[in-house]
């Protein structure tokens, strides 16, 4: 009787011990992150002003801004989205709905999962050889956008497949029973139901891409640019211009890296400010992903 009591007591003590250990493990990660964020905020917050967003880089830290880099990051993301989303979603739908279940399909599936784990610099090297030298796309916005699109393509494909898989088979069967073709079923039922998951995957992919530096340095992103890309609209016929795709570019992480390596302390504070902006951009994107997922989940009633 006595020994049972001690056993229970001992087990309870271990239970409490693990709770404390788990909490400590959690705190290590959280406090480090919090300290970094707070430090970045304290250093960078006073630098955030309207002129910081609307000025080009400069040798005067107080005049230097992030205009060319945030615009560069945004347009590169635009090209990335325009390429990765149609390709990735179409590939995911094909793999999940159309592809026959044989060894070739499983081989492709395994390789897509592997691609998601490849270091980003490898994509940069491949893009340098393929896009810059083979296709002669130049060290331009289009090259950067395509490179990052390849980088996040596996993420988009995988999340599309997971989202589609979550749609119950009964929904498809009901649709087929009404005489719908496979494409009609996919377009009218499967895709709308899985849109939340797909969009979440896309945004998480994009928020990874926006912080990437290595592949962009490899393909030749520049450091000093004091002009914006060409306007996408022109006053002459046909009014739409794609000249901006071929413009040179810089992006936020490269601007931050450049400022950090400067001797003047004021530049380091600018870097903190730009880091804060980049972090907020990523957080907003992730927040958007959560919001979208929440709204779509609420709408679906099976």
């Amino acid at each position: 009787m006595m020994s049972l009591k001690t056993t229970i007591q001992m087990n309870k003590r271990f239970d409490a011990l693990f709770a404390i250990l788990g909490l400590l493990s959690l705190l290590v990660g959280l406090t480090t992150l919090l300290a970094l964020v707070v430090d970045l905020f304290l250093d960078g917050a006073d630098h955030l002003s309207w002129t910081f967003f609307t000025s080009f880089p400069s040798r005067f830290p107080e005049k230097a801004g992030i205009l060319s880099s945030w615009v560069g990051s945004s347009v590169v993301m635009l090209v990335t989205t325009a390429t990765a989303v149609p390709l990735g979603v179409a590939a995911g739908v094909y793999l999940e709905e159309y592809a026959p279940k044989n060894w070739l399909t499983s081989l492709i599936e395994i390789n897509i999962a592997n691609l998601a784990g490849i270091p980003s610099i490898v994509y940069g090297l491949m893009a340098l050889g393929l896009f810059v030298y083979q296709f002669r796309l130049g060290q331009s916005i289009q090259t950067a956008g395509l490179t990052l699109a390849l980088l996040i393509l596996p993420i988009v494909i995988i999340s599309t497949r997971e989202a589609i898989r979550a749609v119950p088979a009964t929904m498809r069967e009901a649709s087929y029973a009404m005489g719908a073709t496979k494409w009609q079923t996919t377009r009218d039922h499967v895709l709308p139901y899985s849109l939340g998951g797909i969009l979440t995957g896309i945004i998480i992919g994009l928020s990874r891409a926006i912080g990437e530096t290595a592949p962009l340095i490899t393909i030749g992103a520049l450091t000093f640019i004091a002009f914006l890309p060409h306007a996408p609209f022109s006053s002459q016929f046909p009014f739409v211009s794609f000249e901006w795709l071929e413009d040179p570019f810089t992006v936020m992480p490269i601007q931050i890296f450049n400022w950090v390596s400067r001797p003047q302390d004021e530049f380091h504070l600018n870097a903190a400010g730009a880091g804060l902006v980049l972090m907020v951009m990523v957080m907003v994107m992730n927040g958007l992903a959560i919001a979208i997922r929440y709204r779509f989940r609420k709408k679906i009633k099976w």
Binding site: V71, S74, V75, M77, L78, T81, L195, L199, I203, F227, L228, P229, H230, A231, P232, F233, S234, S241, E243, W244, L288, I292, R295, F296
Partner: peptide, 23 residues
């Protein structure tokens, strides 16, 4: 729903239009 994603990009596009094309 798509609008929410497109909006920031539209903003960027407008910024380009305001900014004149250079030589």
């Amino acid at each position: 729903m798509k609008k929410e994603i497109i909006r920031p990009f539209t903003l960027c596009l407008i910024l380009f239009v305001l900014h004149d094309a250079q030589a």
